[in-house]
């Protein structure tokens, strides 16, 4: 549990392998080209030796299963009818894409994604500003408070919100009875809009800290001189925001939005715990779960999974191409 332990495994490799080829930042030596290419080759080899294991593990845990899912999605196959497995080509996809359920669930999923990310962005930005500007004395406690939702288990968050709003055990109805539309007879989980409200509230509560931390990083990169200069020029707070701060954090905002959007698109835990998809709250992950795990229709379930994966890829592609979110660049690229 000491901080040194995880770092140690690096050292042997470094000791043995980096010694001969000093490293890219090293003093440039004016030796022969052959020696240079030797060094380059050694560095490449070392690079792959170090990065390879992680790379292989990542591929093994995801590539194989997705290939398997693609293969299974071409069959009509029910786990409890092993004898009736039958190749049907793209039949499963046809069934899914011509079914309203898919499109309805896609709509709900997109709705959740858009609303939660939009609110999280605003709320997260406010929190980031608070943390950025906070007096030293409260910075620590603030950070601690904000990190609690981040670290909490989603399932726990789902239960907490569910119990608070539940018509039988919850106190929300009696607390907010003064609001129009809320009284002790309001059953939050009996219809889509109110149920989605609670689901999204739990999702937003749990993940806003994440987005606010990403934005905080972006905020820290806005050079103080620019803001100061604007202030000197007599810009209002809002003008400073709009003209200086936000344009300078565009990359951070884009990355934060993309990460969260992809995460929100895969929402499962909150819906599963609170409504299990009842009354128009079903999302795509739950649809995949129901086909392959509840119905044991492996073929159909795999096809939903593959489509879900494709949706994620499309969102990612659109974000990167259309909005030019440069993730690798944001990382510091080369």
């Amino acid at each position: 549990m000491t901080s040194a332990i995880p770092a140690r495994p690096v050292s042997p490799d470094l000791e043995q392998d980096t010694t001969p080829g000093v490293g890219p930042g090293g003093p440039s030596d004016k030796k022969a080209a052959a020696q240079y290419s030797d060094r380059v080759r050694a560095e490449r080899r070392l690079g792959w030796m170090l990065a390879g294991p992680a790379f292989i593990v990542m591929l093994a845990v995801t590539l194989y299963p997705i290939l398997q899912a693609i293969y299974e999605s071409l069959f009509q196959f029910r786990l409890t009818a092993p004898g009736e497995r039958e190749f049907i080509g793209l039949g499963n996809y046809l069934v899914i894409l011509t079914d309203n359920v898919w499109w309805k669930d896609l709509g709900v999923t997109l709705l959740i994604t858009v609303i939660t990310v939009a609110i999280e962005l605003v709320l997260g930005f406010a929190l980031a500003l608070v943390m950025h500007k906070a007096l030293k004395a409260v910075r620590g406690p603030l950070r601690t408070a904000i990190l609690v939702p981040y670290g909490i288990i989603t399932v726990v968050s789902a239960f907490a919100w569910f119990y608070a709003f539940d018509i039988n055990s919850g106190y929300v109805n009696s607390w907010f009875a003064w609001l129009p539309g809320i009284d002790s007879d309001l059953n939050w989980f009996a219809q889509g809009p109110t149920a989605l409200f609670v689901i999204m509230a739990s999702e937003i509560w749990k993940t806003t800290p994440f987005i606010s931390l990403l934005l905080l990083a972006g905020l820290a990169q806005v050079p103080d001189e620019l803001t100061e200069a604007a202030k000197v020029d007599g810009a209002t707070w809002w003008e400073q925001m709009r003209k200086v701060i936000i344009p300078n954090m565009k990359a951070a905002i884009m990355v934060a939005v993309l990460f969260r959007a992809l995460d929100a698109f895969r929402i499962f835990d909150n819906v599963f715990i609170m409504t299990n998809g009842a009354y128009g709250t079903e999302v795509l992950s739950l649809l995949a779960y129901r086909q392959s795990i509840s119905r044991l229709e492996i073929g159909l379930g795999s096809a939903v999974s593959v489509l879900l994966f494709l949706c994620v890829l499309i969102i990612c592609f659109i974000a990167i191409k259309l909005f030019k979110v440069d993730l690798a660049g944001a990382q510091g690229g080369k």
Binding site: I167, N168, S184, D185, L186, N187, F189, A190, A278, Y279
Partner: peptide
């Protein structure tokens, strides 16, 4: 009652 749409065995007993 108002909770009918989410009422299971346990909640109906409570009511």
């Amino acid at each position: 009652g108002p909770g009918l749409a989410t009422q299971n065995e346990n909640t109906s007993m409570i009511n």
